[in-house]
């Protein structure tokens, strides 16, 4: 009996101390964690559609969308949406123009793709800098190089962009001249990751249209 009480008392004390300590730590960490997430999201939106204030328009069914406004004028849209990649979820931020006709950029936020293959779906630091200098890069014949996969979503130069009608499809081995505005060149040996990103973009724009229509249209 005495031992049982001793055991119970020990576990209760240990449990209470642990709970108390964790609640203190959480009080300190939780706002910082939320702040980190917000900063990361804001940085991504500011990179994709610079120069405006994001206003949350939709937040439903796992999709969040912001319209980036500069005063009254719309600069574009940013959608946060996730889908299944080669091994696990791929979380992306997708930029559209103000009329939601073109894709203006795609950034992969988190993924677990195969290093050195599927991970080419990520935008590198150098590519980010190059894109900050100009809105898009003319890929020319380099369109088939794996590293350039994410750049395709930022446009082909000369104001030509991928379509945001939800009809993007992945192709292989085409030259720049052969690629249409609804065709995305696959990463060699990482077709599944390429298709995954493209599918997420298609699903996101279709879902955003549906959700906005449900809200009574824009």
């Amino acid at each position: 009996m005495k031992i049982t009480l001793h055991m119970l008392a020990t576990l209760i004390v240990v449990g209470m101390l642990s709970g108390g300590a964790l609640s203190l730590v959480n009080d300190h960490a939780a706002p910082l964690i939320a702040e980190n997430e917000r900063k990361e999201r804001d940085a991504a939106i500011a990179f994709l559609v610079p120069g405006g204030t994001p206003t949350e328009m939709v937040n439903a069914e796992g999709l969040t969308a912001w319209e980036v406004l500069n005063g009254e004028t719309s600069l574009g849209w940013v959608i946060q949406y996730a889908g299944i990649g080669f091994q696990a979820e791929i979380k992306t931020m997708i930029a559209l123009d103000s009329e939601r006709k073109d894709v203006r950029g795609v950034m992969v936020i988190t993924d677990s793709e195969t290093p050195g293959l599927g991970t080419w779906i990520r935008l590198s630091g150098e590519q980010k800098e190059a894109l900050l200098a100009s809105d898009s890069r003319d890929l020319g014949d380099e369109v088939g190089i794996a590293q350039n996969f994410p750049l395709q979503f930022f446009g082909f130069g000369g104001g030509q962009h991928l379509s945001a009608a939800g009809d993007l499809k992945v192709v292989k081995g085409k030259t720049r001249a052969q690629l249409g505005t609804s065709e995305v060149q696959a990463i060699t040996a990482a077709t599944i990751s390429s298709v995954a990103v493209t599918d997420i973009v298609n699903a996101a724009v279709i879902k955003l249209d549906r959700l906005l229509a449900g809200q009574g249209g824009v």
Binding site: V25, H28, A29, I33
Partner: peptide, 12 residues
């Protein structure tokens, strides 16, 4: 408890 502390503080 200590692992959760590390996890939270690292995230923060």
């Amino acid at each position: 408890t200590f692992v959760t502390i590390v996890d939270l503080e690292m995230k923060a």
